Simulated assay, not measured.
Amino acid sequence: MSARALATAWLNHLAVERGLSANTLSNYRRDVERYLEWLEATGITELGSVTALDIEAYVADLRRGGLAASSAGRALVVARGLHKFAVVEGHIGVDVAADVSPPATGRHLPDTLSIEEVSLLIDAVPTGDTATPVDLRDRALLELLYGTGARISEILGLAVDDLVDCDGILRLTGKGNKQRIVPVGAPAMAAVDDYLVRARPAFATGRSHALLLNKRGGALSRQSAWAILKTAGARARLDKEISPHTLRHSYATHLLEGGADVRSVQELLGHSSVTTTQIYTHVTAENLRQVWREAHPRA
């Protein structure tokens, strides 16, 4: 069986047997196609002809082409999955991809906004009597992202009932359907209440119970949420790349700078391991080093 036929069978297996989401399958399909095109460019059409050196060369080419180490690592995971499937199904005898190491990744300190920059970002969205329903929705989105430190998928997954009578405590459903509770501050609750009273009825068609709606009455999409942040960032004239994760990073950093302990921040972010949360301690430590460099006479 050709490499392309095996890839098709594997993707069908992932969809039917493993039940992967459409978004995950789309990512796998993209990476598989990239791998197959690379193999074909080198004259390889059968997985049985691939060697470990070929796969190492593939990953190296991805890196030389500008792909980040983390993205190249994910591409390798997909190639490994395809080869493992071919072995399990009996189409090839040896899994040459199993021992290929992913490219080393350096520790990346997440981009953050200062407290002042967060205020500028949120205040860039009009409020009060002149605000449109879209403005009120966008403001509620920004306040919730920064006020809870939630992932964008967690905020977009909220239903109206999740915010009604929540008494300042919100239950979020994170990765692996794990639930956690996070406090919601007064500014975020005020923005949500304003949106629910003055804006959401203008969007609602009865088709969706989602808290945040688009103009057609459906749940707000991830792409639209990104666009809202980029628009607010441009209005605030912030010279930084801003994404939903930027506000999550800023939330964690500001908590630690304010004296919160790492374990508490871990719980609020929904990290399964404190090691993941500890990257933010490096951010705050770097801030302290910068202050020291600027202020100490013998720095």
Rank of each mutant, 00 (worst) to 15 (best):
A86M: 09
D161Y: 01
L76G: 08
A3C: 07
L269C: 08
E40I: 09
T51S: 15
Y195H: 05
R29I: 01
A79S: 14
V265Y: 13
G128Q: 11
L121S: 11
S21I: 07
R29Y: 03
Y146K: 07
R263V: 13
H271L: 10
A295M: 13
E37Y: 01
L53S: 14
G48L: 06
F203D: 07
V283P: 09
D123V: 05
L113W: 00
G157K: 06
S71P: 06
R151M: 11
V32N: 07
G218Y: 04
R171Y: 02
C166I: 00
A86V: 01
Y251E: 07
A252D: 09
L39N: 00
H296M: 11
D54S: 09
L256K: 11
T205K: 11
R248M: 09
R293E: 15
R74M: 12
S26Q: 15
R200K: 03
E46C: 12
G48Q: 04
A41V: 01
P103Q: 06
V184K: 02
L6V: 13
H83A: 02
I55K: 06
T275I: 09
L268Y: 00
L229I: 12
A124G: 13
L109G: 08
N27E: 10
I92W: 09
A159P: 00
E37C: 10
G128I: 11
T51Y: 04
A150R: 01
G176K: 04
V274R: 01
N214C: 11
N12K: 10
K215N: 14
A86H: 00
L256G: 09
I44K: 13
R74W: 07
M1E: 06
W226Y: 14
A79F: 01
V125F: 03
L238D: 10
L213H: 05
P102W: 00
L156S: 12
R18H: 02
I55D: 01
V16S: 04
T45C: 07
L163G: 02
I155H: 03
A79H: 07
A140S: 05
T42F: 02
R298A: 09
G258E: 03
A98K: 14
G270H: 01
A299L: 12
I181A: 12
A97F: 05
R263L: 15
N23R: 15
R29F: 06
V262Y: 03
E294A: 15
D135G: 08
A72D: 05
S273P: 05
D54I: 04
F203E: 10
S221Y: 02
A299N: 13
R298I: 04
V118Q: 09
A150T: 04
L142S: 08
V182Y: 00
A15V: 11
A79L: 08
T45W: 03
D31M: 11
W226E: 06
R80I: 06
V87M: 09
L158M: 12
E89V: 14
E154C: 12
S208K: 02
L136E: 11
T277Y: 03
E46W: 00
A252K: 08
V262R: 07
V88S: 11
G66V: 07
I228T: 15
P110F: 03
E286L: 14
E286V: 09
T51W: 01
S243C: 02
T112M: 13
P133L: 10
T205R: 13
R293D: 15
I122A: 10
G149H: 01
R34N: 13
